[in-house]
Computed example of a mutant assay.
Amino acid sequence: MGVERLDRLLARLGLGSRKEVGRLIRRGQVRVGGAVVLDPGFKVGEGALLEVEGKPIRAFRHLHVLLHKPGGYVTSRTEGPSVYALLQGFPTRDLSPVGRLDKDTEGLLLFTTHGELLHRLTHPRHKVEKRYLVHLERPATPEDQRAFQEGLLLEGERLLPAKLVLGEDPTRVELVLKEGRYHQVKRMFAQRGNRVLYLKRLALGPLELGDLPVGAARALSPEEAAALYQAVGLGGKNP
């Protein structure tokens, strides 16, 4: 990042448009290194400690945004309704999705400006876990658990071992994968003679969807970004 204009940096971090953050700055609502800055063009260095309306943030090179994707939206820039329409206030031109969720699938969808992080989070070699809530047409069984754990043979290809968690209601299960193939969850259960009625991603590696409202998006905290980097062997890099 080097140095960057204060108004551009705050807009890139999702704190409003350049015009909106410019007004914040001129009202004295932004501090850099503890000092009030009134000039939107003030140059900010990487790692600088900022305060916006009393809330501390760090100026980092890359931006990572977590979206609670609703059903009915597509992970695409060219088709609609697009998940990018939900990233209000964020620089959507610079953000790429970490994998995709089907139109009818809900839950955690991560966007990032960091190409190497994106690659490592999606490549099977790094075995980043993805946890899903799955509603099924009929109950899952211990035999399904064993088949998934052994690595299901799907259209001639052996999948990585997956963990199927059965609760009190075996039509409501959790599934943990370490890869992300096309329609994988639906195809896995179809292979076992079952049908997915509802699918929601709850977690990606160390990231949890938590109580983020459906359709809402937020920037990751520095601690969350650092945990992601650590999970894929980029622990020494600046998030």
Rank of each mutant, 00 (worst) to 15 (best):
V128D: 12
E129N: 06
K130E: 10
K130W: 09
K130Y: 09
K130G: 07
R131M: 07
Y132D: 09
L133F: 15
V134H: 12
V134W: 14
V134N: 06
H135T: 14
L136W: 14
L136N: 09
R138P: 11
P139A: 03
P139H: 04
A140T: 08
A140R: 03
P142T: 04
P142I: 02
P142R: 05
E143T: 08
Q145T: 00
Q145K: 03
R146K: 11
R146Q: 02
A147M: 05
Q149H: 03
E150G: 10
E150Y: 03
G151V: 09
G151Q: 08
L152C: 07
L152T: 01
L152P: 09
L153Q: 15
L154I: 02
E155R: 14
G156N: 02
E157R: 14
E157L: 06
R158D: 04
R158A: 09
L159N: 04
L159T: 15
A162P: 10
A162I: 02
A162D: 01
K163V: 10
L164V: 01
L164N: 00
V165R: 15
V165P: 01
G167D: 08
G167R: 15
D169H: 13
P170C: 04
P170R: 03
R172A: 07
R172W: 12
V173L: 04
E174Y: 04
E174Q: 12
L175W: 05
L175P: 02
V176G: 00
V176T: 15
K178I: 11
K178L: 13
K178Y: 15
G180Q: 14
G180T: 12
R181N: 01
R181K: 07
Y182V: 11
H183P: 00
H183G: 00
H183F: 04
H183E: 01
Q184P: 08
V185E: 01
V185C: 06
R187G: 07
R187P: 07
M188F: 11
F189D: 11
Q191N: 15
G193N: 06
N194M: 14
V196N: 10
V196A: 07
